[in-house]
């Protein structure tokens, strides 16, 4: 039995503590120990992107990180996107533009797109494609996702302008 480690972290603004083996993958810790099953496992080798979360505000693959490495960090998962019972504008855009079918890649796609839009708030279509190429989707042919991310960029950009004007 390997030594157990304690992991304390904040997920979606809520403090959690758990104990696990050091080899436990962060995605398994989120799903099994914290019962946050919104983050999905698609390949466990860092290619498909289904497990993408925001790690201290930046998109990262939770299948190729250890839970112990997240000790002391702040994580945002798909469960934390909705605020006050309202869908995030990115979620809203995915619904409006049919950016999902089976929904399995969707959590990773949303978190990746959120981070991407932070680094590039007004992307071109080619830039959106490049940004979301970090996540594999087998259902949509990506068109609905590209449309959704572009629409969300407009909504979020508009919101940012309003905020900066006040």
């Amino acid at each position: 039995m390997a030594e157990m480690v304690t992991v304390r972290l904040k997920v979606n603004g809520v403090a959690h503590e758990g104990r696990c083996e050091p080899r436990k993958l962060l995605v398994d810790f989120l799903r099994e120990d914290l019962e946050l099953t919104g983050t999905h496992i698609g390949c466990e080798h860092g290619i498909c992107g289904a497990c993408t979360i925001l790690f201290n505000g930046e998109a990262a693959r939770s299948c190729i990180m250890l839970a112990v490495q997240a000790d002391g960090s702040e994580i945002l998962t798909v469960e934390g996107l909705m605020q006050n019972g309202t869908l995030h504008p990115l979620q809203e855009a995915f619904r409006e533009h049919h950016g999902l079918q089976c929904g399995f890649c969707t959590p990773g796609m949303l978190m990746t797109a959120l981070d991407f839009l932070k680094t590039n708030p007004s992307p071109t279509e080619a830039e959106v494609r490049e940004g979301i190429s970090a996540v594999l989707c087998r259902c949509t042919g990506y068109q609905g996702i590209v449309n959704a991310v572009r629409a969300a960029a407009r909504t979020l950009g508009g919101a940012a302008k309003v905020e900066s004007g006040t």
Partner: peptide, 20 residues
């Protein structure tokens, strides 16, 4: 018509075989 499935799938509340 926009999909009713999307609410749960966009918010991490889907129920796939590995979930529950």
């Amino acid at each position: 018509v926009k999909r009713v499935e999307d609410y749960r799938l966009l918010t991490g509340r889907g129920t796939y075989i590995d979930d529950h």
